[in-house]
Design a protein around this nucleic acid. Structure first.
Lengths: 109, 109
DNA sequence: AAATATACCTAATCTACTTAGGTATATCAA
DNA sequence: TTGATATACCTAAGTAGATTAGGTATATTT
């Protein structure tokens, strides 16, 4: 996140991307989020890679290496645990965003 | 924020409340956010008071003490600088929330 | 009399991020 | 052909905004 605005959405973003795409590699996630948000949200690699490792260690993701165009890529995929985690974390985030919208849309009197 | 989900929205929330209400005291903000979000967002005093002090020192808020029902209250109000800060920070946050919604609503093919 | 609510506060800790590097290979432009 | 940019991964140090866990004091409710 190069937004410094909000911390705590990187994990749910990763979970969402993998839930939709099935399989992605880190560098691809950075670009995908840039596209999806028209540059509004810019994931930094310094945040992304440690988070991917953490999710892998926690058993939410698993990894497979693949050679594409003479380049080594590290593909991530949700485990079963990761899939149910994705569901709950995304619901939780959606609820939070609704609540925030409620505050921002609030008009006094 | 007792959500641990998201960090960075406390300041904009304070700015929004004061922009709408004109004047509020800290304890009131905690309850107001609880009401507005149906308990979804629970501001903690440990986060709130230091943030109010910081905004005051930075010249975004000013303070007036008042005695209500035999209780000392510390009312906060936006300064002029605070008002323009509120506008820009709230626009920024709204943009971020839109971007996040875009990610959450994204469906692959 | 004790528990809860109002109303303020702070210090220590946590953690998710930013910043700022690093490695290595491939492609494109001057 | 050399330098810049893109691809693709990584880590360590520092920061900032929270949480957690206390504290004080008075008023109201049980």
């Amino acid at each position: 996140m190069t937004n410094k605005l909000i911390q705590g959405v990187l994990q749910p973003i990763i979970l969402k991307l993998l839930a939709e795409e099935g399989e992605m590699y880190g560098y691809e996630m950075v670009q995908r989020v840039r596209e999806l948000t028209a540059g509004n949200i810019e994931i930094t690699e310094g945040a992304l890679y440690p988070t991917l490792h953490k999710l892998e260690v926690a058993g939410q993701l698993n990894v497979s290496f693949r050679q594409v165009h003479n380049r080594q890529r590290k593909y991530y995929r949700l485990t079963e645990a990761g899939q149910s985690m994705a569901v709950s974390r995304l619901e939780e985030l959606a609820g939070f965003l609704r609540a925030m919208q409620g505050v921002l849309n609030w008009k006094n009197v």
